[in-house]
Design a protein around this nucleic acid. Structure first.
Length: 213
DNA sequence: ACCCAGGTGGCCC
DNA sequence: GGGCCACATGGG
């Protein structure tokens, strides 16, 4: 199946509007780190509890005792790493950019990406999620779900993040809303219909998914 | 009692 | 460059 047809079918099949709700660029950054290897539902619990306490804020996260941040992050798993990485990012923004996430995100896309990647706990997926949802840059997120789905459908078999990303970016117009929707559609599909048995039973890709039972 | 989850980093070869 | 592993809570 061609990439264009895949997106056309998924788009007709699922509604992923409001996929990454966030009220600020800092909230996108926090969500991007928290959501690593966990569910968005768990992330929402943490974000909401932070919001209720009025500490969904760069300076608050930079200043609070690490143990308190760990306690808040616990529902999202890997809480010791995530709390340390969030506080590192908050202190980095506070020290270098007066606590403004725009200090990074308003730079050129490549420079901003390199800077994000230099921070602990921010790898390619997280950096691209921050650039796409927080910075509205046309960066496609080549997540593991994306690579597995492309592989299964015979669109592109590669475990190389950059190769998969370039493949999509060379074929889809560089519109951040479009990239966000394509990514959301792929992940949503992978987590819902694609997981039922037989694979994709009753979903828009049932004729294309190899029956792996 | 499993398995999975919107990854990253460290270590080994 | 790839293949393992730890990291951790919460839901099916």
């Amino acid at each position: 199946m061609e990439l264009e047809e895949l997106f056309r079918r998924l788009d007709a099949c699922y509604d992923v509007s409001g996929w990454w709700p966030a009220e600020s660029r800092w909230e996108v950054m926090v969500g991007a780190i928290l959501v690593q290897q966990t569910t968005w539902e768990s992330v929402v619990k943490v974000l909401e509890s932070m919001r209720r306490r009025g500490i969904l804020d760069v300076d608050a996260v930079a200043s609070m005792p690490l143990g308190e941040l760990e306690r808040l992050v616990r529902p999202a798993g890997f809480y010791r790493q995530k709390a340390a990485r969030l506080q590192h990012l908050a202190r980095y923004l506070r020290e270098r950019y007066g606590s403004d996430p725009g200090g990074i995100l308003d730079k050129g896309t490549e420079e901003a990406r390199a800077e994000l990647l230099s921070l602990p706990g921010i790898g390619e997926e997280t950096a691209d999620a921050i650039l796409l949802f927080g910075g509205r840059r046309p960066r496609f997120i080549a997540a593991a779900y994306v690579r597995r789905t492309f592989d299964r459908l015979g669109i592109l078999s590669s475990s190389d993040y950059g190769e998969v990303q370039r493949f999509v970016e060379a074929r889809v117009p560089p519109d951040p809303d479009r990239y966000a929707r394509c990514y959301a559609l792929l992940v949503h599909h992978a987590r819902t219909a694609c997981r039922s048995r037989p694979r994709c039973a009753g979903c828009c890709l049932r004729d294309a998914c190899p029956a792996t039972a």
